[in-house]
Amino acid sequence: MRVHSLHPWPATRAEAEAVQDRLRPLVSLTGPATFPLVAGLDVHYRGEDELTAAVVVLRSGTLEVVEQVSVRGRTTFPYIPGLFAFREAPALVEALERLSVTPDLLVCDGYGLAHPRGFGLACHLGVLTGLPALGVGKTAFVGDFDEPGRSRGSWSPITLDGAVVGRALRTQDGVKPVFVSQGHRIALDTACDQVLELAPRFRQPEPIRRADRLARGGSTPTP
Rank of each mutant, 00 (worst) to 15 (best):
residue 44 H to K: 09
residue 132 P to H: 12
residue 52 T to S: 09
residue 125 L to C: 03
residue 137 G to E: 01
residue 102 T to R: 14
residue 132 P to R: 10
residue 120 G to V: 01
residue 90 P to R: 12
residue 60 S to N: 11
residue 81 P to W: 09
residue 156 S to R: 13
residue 155 W to P: 02
residue 107 V to E: 05
residue 65 V to L: 03
residue 163 A to H: 15
residue 118 G to D: 09
residue 134 L to S: 00
residue 145 F to H: 15
residue 123 C to G: 12
residue 119 F to R: 10
residue 142 V to W: 07
residue 84 F to N: 09
residue 165 V to S: 01
residue 116 P to Y: 07
residue 162 G to F: 15
residue 160 L to S: 11
residue 96 L to F: 02
residue 159 T to K: 15
residue 83 L to N: 00
residue 103 P to G: 06
residue 65 V to A: 07
residue 156 S to A: 15
residue 53 A to S: 13
residue 62 T to A: 12
residue 89 A to W: 00
residue 142 V to I: 12
residue 114 A to R: 08
residue 121 L to E: 03
residue 111 Y to C: 07
residue 128 L to S: 00
residue 54 A to I: 02
residue 167 R to A: 12
residue 127 V to W: 01
residue 67 E to T: 11
residue 156 S to K: 14
residue 137 G to T: 06
residue 71 V to A: 03
residue 153 G to A: 10
residue 167 R to H: 15
residue 139 T to R: 15
residue 106 L to K: 06
residue 136 V to G: 00
residue 167 R to V: 11
residue 110 G to C: 06
residue 160 L to V: 07
residue 48 E to D: 14
residue 116 P to V: 11
residue 161 D to N: 15
residue 132 P to V: 10
residue 106 L to Y: 04
residue 49 D to Q: 15
residue 83 L to A: 06
residue 110 G to P: 04
residue 40 G to M: 08
residue 46 R to G: 13
residue 113 L to Y: 09
residue 156 S to W: 13
residue 83 L to Q: 05
residue 114 A to G: 08
residue 103 P to N: 04
residue 167 R to M: 14
residue 87 R to T: 02
residue 136 V to F: 04
residue 90 P to G: 05
residue 155 W to K: 15
residue 157 P to E: 10
residue 95 A to V: 05
residue 88 E to R: 09
residue 151 S to K: 15
residue 75 T to N: 09
residue 136 V to D: 04
residue 141 F to P: 00
residue 152 R to D: 04
residue 101 V to F: 04
residue 112 G to W: 06
residue 112 G to V: 08
residue 122 A to Q: 08
residue 87 R to M: 06
residue 60 S to F: 10
residue 126 G to L: 07
residue 109 D to K: 09
residue 67 E to F: 09
residue 82 G to F: 02
residue 77 F to T: 00
residue 76 T to Y: 12
residue 159 T to C: 14
residue 103 P to D: 10
residue 165 V to A: 07
residue 42 D to M: 06
residue 123 C to V: 11
residue 101 V to G: 03
residue 96 L to Q: 04
residue 94 E to F: 03
